[in-house]
Nucleic acid binder design. Structure first.
Lengths: 172, 172
DNA sequence: CATTTTAATCAGGTCCCCCTGACTAAAATT
DNA sequence: AATTTTAGTCAGGGGGACCTGATTAAAATG
């Protein structure tokens, strides 16, 4: 049986990590004045980008459907990404109602894990600790996928694919 | 010497955790339609709340200074919290320029870790894994505090106090 | 061919985080 | 007493994540 106090300890550390991590990012961005790419969240524009990196050339409707967004929100995010030069929009030749969204080279780079470095806060950890962390996170993520599954069965498969695909490079 | 591939693995898992965690929260909020209190982030209104829970009765200027916010932003967040009934504003009697901000009972509850339960995704972990996770996160957080320190020495002490204080209950 | 369905767009809204500029009221200084 | 500094407020702005409603253009279907 699980030790509740151990769970609480870990939960507390996790909350602390969240806060400290966020603040460290913020401070780094401010003081070093470098355009530190904040990690892509699976939300808003990031959602679009990540999904396209897994299957490029979708229509806005496709994106909206598989991301559980309204078409209007999707259009908004896509337009913002166009302005940033991360994706392109072009009318489909086969069905001229549709707009095909494609990643630009810059968009690919942004979405790709290749541009993501190992965060510095992992470097002090020993190999053993890294292994432990990986094992634990794998277990936790499993649990979370399961939760998502239960609440929203239709959509999980795709979400998981997207995430997995994005992270595959790291495990080669 | 650290194994870079192990670092990458862990980093990937961490990114995955971030995305999956976020999505799970979102899905839970949407589908269960329960007012799942999203965890307090150290930003915006949450920043204010957390800081007050560590030292109540600060002025807006005090808050702005120690949180690295403009006074206007601070005022905005405070006003929103007042509307939500989480804090109160009253003119200082000793210096009538100042406004003293205090947590209400509801505010205290919201800021207190008591409202945060152990997330479900920790329950499948064994005691050993929980210990490992705690140890690892402690190390990571240490590193991050140090980073914040380097970039913004003036402010860290206070930030750390706030965080530590908020989490103290968990370790008793 | 006429109607319906589909993909998108425009318009407008809600709420969040965060900033600068302009201005008032009260305390501190000269 | 006159000036300056300090704490706050109002006004307005830039981004971001979302949404509903109304309208247009093109494809599918009766």
């Amino acid at each position: 049986m699980p030790d509740v106090s151990k769970q609480k300890k870990a939960a507390g550390k996790l909350i602390e990590f969240d806060m400290v991590h966020h603040t460290a990012d913020e401070v780094a961005r401010r003081h070093h004045s470098n355009k530190t790419k904040q990690p892509l969240r699976f939300q808003g524009q990031g959602k679009i980008l990540l999904t396209l990196s897994q299957s490029d050339g979708l229509s806005q409707k496709d994106l909206a459907t598989r991301l559980n967004l309204s078409v209007q929100s999707t259009a908004e995010f896509v337009n913002k990404l166009v302005k940033k030069g991360l994706v392109t929009k072009e009318k489909s030749q086969t069905d001229r109602r549709k707009t095909v969204i494609r990643l630009t080279t810059l968009g690919e780079q942004t979405a790709s894990t290749e541009t993501a470095q190992v965060p510095e806060f992992l470097t002090p950890l020993t190999d053993t600790e890294l292994d432990q962390l990986t094992t634990i996170l794998t277990k936790i993520n499993e649990t979370l996928y399961h939760e998502i599954d239960e609440a929203s069965p239709a959509q999980t498969g795709k979400f998981r694919e997207v995430v997995a695909d994005r992270l595959r490079d790291w495990f080669l």
